[in-house]
Design a protein around this nucleic acid. Sequence first.
DNA 1: CTGTTAGCGCATTCAT
DNA 2: ATGAATGCGCTAACAG
Lengths: 343, 343
Amino acid sequence: MDSALGARPGAGRVTIGDVARAAGVSIPTVSKVINQRDGVAAATMTRVQQVVADLGYETSLVARSLRSSRTGVLGILVPEFEPFSTELLRGISSATTGTGYELLAYAGLMTGADRPGWERRSLSRLSGTLIDGAIVVTPTTALSSSSIPVVAIDPHTGPEGHATVDADNEGGAVQAVEHLLALGHTRIAHLRGRADLASAQLREAGYRSALTAAGIVVDERLVRDGDYQEEQSASAARDLLTLVARPTAVFAANDSSAIGVLRAATDLGLRVPEDLSVVGFDDVPQASITVPPLTTVSQPLAELGSRAVELLLTMLRGEAATDHVRLSTTLRVRSSSGPVPRD
Amino acid sequence: MDSALGARPGAGRVTIGDVARAAGVSIPTVSKVINQRDGVAAATMTRVQQVVADLGYETSLVARSLRSSRTGVLGILVPEFEPFSTELLRGISSATTGTGYELLAYAGLMTGADRPGWERRSLSRLSGTLIDGAIVVTPTTALSSSSIPVVAIDPHTGPEGHATVDADNEGGAVQAVEHLLALGHTRIAHLRGRADLASAQLREAGYRSALTAAGIVVDERLVRDGDYQEEQSASAARDLLTLVARPTAVFAANDSSAIGVLRAATDLGLRVPEDLSVVGFDDVPQASITVPPLTTVSQPLAELGSRAVELLLTMLRGEAATDHVRLSTTLRVRSSSGPVPRD
DNA sequence: CTGTTAGCGCATTCAT
DNA sequence: ATGAATGCGCTAACAG
C-alpha cells in the first residue's frame, strides 16, 4: 500500500492528482472541468468544482505552460528594477488590467561580464512558453528570431528589426538646448551617455544640431563622457567647471548625470541656477526632489509602457501592427535652469 | 538524414535535446555539464559548452522547476504595479543584486469579485516550484501553510501567522497629528482608510491617541471614510469642509486620500495651507509634485523591500529568523501644512 | 461521458 | 564516463 502518497495534502502543493483522488475521478476529467471543456456530466462537474474549492487547488503555471501553448501571461523583461523600468511597469500594469492577461516581470539582475545579452538569456528562460508575449525594456541587442511576439521599449540599438516603442530622443535634446539658448546661454556643455547606446547618440545629435542651428560652433572641449552615471558625470563636471572659460550651462544626457553635475557644482561652491544652469533627461521621480528641482526632458514613461502593451496585444491577436511607435517628449522647466550669469 | 530536425533552431526554442544532438552526446550528459556535476570527461565537457554557447541555449525555467526543487528565483507577488509596490520593488531589486538570485514579480491583476484571495491564487500558481521563496505585498489573508518560505510586506491582517515586514503605522499617525497640534490646530479631521485593513485601523488609532493625549476629545463628525481612494476622499472632504464648524486641518489615511482632499479644497475655493492644512501618509513619489507639495508621513518603502529580502534569504538558508521587522516612519514636512488660520 | 495513453523539457537514478 | 529509463503536473488525442 502506498500509504503516504495521497494522504497528506498539507505537506506540499495541492496537485490535480489530489483533486482527482478526492473527487473519485480521473485526472483528465479534472483537467476538463478546470479548462471549461465540455464532455463532462453536470453532476461530475459540480462535484469536481466543489473539491477544487475545498482544497484550494490552482493549476500550476509551470506545468500548464509546459504542455499548453497559451498561458495568459505577459512577460516584462528588465535588467533590474530601477526608477525607469518601474515607471514603465506602472503604465504596463494599468494598460493590461481588464484584458484578461496577467503580468510577470522578470529581472535577471546580471552584473559585470554577464550583463550584455541578458535579454536573450531571460527571454530564452521564460520562453517555451511561460509567457504568451514579451515586452523587453532597453535591450542592447536585436531580438529578431523569437518564438513569441516581442515588443522592445527604448531599444539601445535603434528601431531596426523588431516592434519598438520609444521616445523622441533627438527632439527632446533639441528642446533642452533651445531652452538654454533662449535663456541667453552660449557656452553650453554636454555630458553624453554611453557611446554604444542609440539613445545617447541621438541626444548628442540633438545637442549638436540645436547649437549649429543657432549659429554656434560646438566646442569639443565642452563635450565629455558621463556614461549615464552619476559618479562619472560628477567627475567630468568637475573638470568642466574648472576650465578657464567654463560653461554657463550643462545639458546632461540623463537625470543621473545631471544629479552628478549638481553635486559637482555644489562641491565647487557654484550656485544653481545663478552660476550654472543644468538640464537633464528622463524626468525620473527623483528629478523633482533634487536641490534645486531639476529642469529636465520628460519622457512619457507610463505611456511608453501602455503603448507597448497595446502593440503586443495587437500582435497577439495576429493582426498586423505598425511596428514602430515614437512618442514625443516635453521639457519640464523647474529650478535648475536660469538666465545666463552676467559678469 | 533527419535533416530538418537539428538544423533549424530559428523555428522554436533551442532545447537540451538540440544541444545533445549537435554535440553528439545524450541529454543527461548535457544536463550534467550545465549543472556543473562531475562524471563528464573534460573533452566532452568543453565540446558541450561550446555547442551551448553557439546555439545560445539556456535552460528553460519552466522545465527545470518542474523537475528540480531549486530555481534560484525569488517571487514578488503584488496585486498590481502601482507606486507603492514599484517602490518596494526597487528596494527588493537592489538588495537582491549580487545574491545569485533572480527576481520574478507577478501581478494577478484581479478586479472586482476575484480580488480577495489573489495572494493565495498567485502563490499557488507559482509554487511547486517556479520560485524558491516569495515576498507577498499587502496580502489580505494569512498565508500560513505554504510549501515555500514567504515574507509578507505590510500585511493587511496584522503580523500574525507569518514572517512580516511593516512600518510603524500608529506611530506615524501620531507624528502627523502632533505636527498639526504643534501648529495650533485643534479641529483636526481624519479620513480613514479601508476598515478591513490593519494599517487603516492603526492609523486611526494613532490619530485618536494623539488627540486624546493632547486633551482633545475626538469629534466623531470629523472622522469620515476615505477608503484609501482619491474619489471617495474628495467627496467626504467636501462634506467636511462645508460643515459650519469646519476643521482647520485634515489627516488623511494615505496620500491618495490627501490628494482628494486637496482637490476638494481647491474646488471650494479654500487655500492650502492658509485656510486648511492637509497631511497624508505613505510619501509616494507623487506626493512631492502635488500643489502644494504634500506634507506626509514617509514610509521607508525601499528599505521595507530590502529588509524583506534579507529576511527571506535567511529563511532560505534554513536559519532561524526574527519573524517580524517593524521600521519607523518619518514625517516629511512640505507645504500643505501651516499654522492654524486666525479668524 | 469517462479513462487510458502520450509527451512537453528537463534532472535524476541506475545501468552499462 | 555515458546513456536508457522514469517522472514532475498537466493537457491533447484517442479509446472505451
